[in-house]
């Protein structure tokens, strides 16, 4: 009887996703990080128009006390802002390769 229970517990540990529920504080921190990255990409002149809507969605989710979704939107916004910064750095070096040959 003990063995199946132990096996089941072990399986649950192995296949658990490790996701920790977000609280208000962590969601707000994620939004702050995304906003900072967005400002960096703006300063470089390479802002994507997809980032601000994600931050707004994250803020709306916080208002609705949906901290998991708020964090997810903010993380997505951060990822996209980081990519736009990477794009700016890449174009700084390589834009001239687009000139007509």
């Amino acid at each position: 009887m003990l063995l199946p229970l132990l096996s089941l517990s072990l399986l649950m540990c192995v296949f658990s996703t490790g996701v920790i529920a977000s609280d208000k504080q962590s969601a707000q921190a994620a939004i702050k990080k995304a906003t900072t990255l967005l400002q960096q990409s703006k300063n470089l002149g390479f802002e994507w128009n997809t980032v601000t809507p994600l931050i707004l969605q994250a803020q709306d989710a916080i208002k609705a006390n949906d901290f998991d979704n708020a964090t997810q939107f903010a993380v997505k916004a951060s990822q996209q802002a980081k990519l736009s910064i990477q794009q700016a750095e890449n174009e700084e070096k390589n834009w001239h390769f687009n000139l007509p040959k």
Binding site: S84, E91, H96
Partner: peptide
């Protein structure tokens, strides 16, 4: 600006 890739 003209030759730089931008946007998603």
């Amino acid at each position: 600006y003209y030759y730089s890739k931008r946007g998603q």
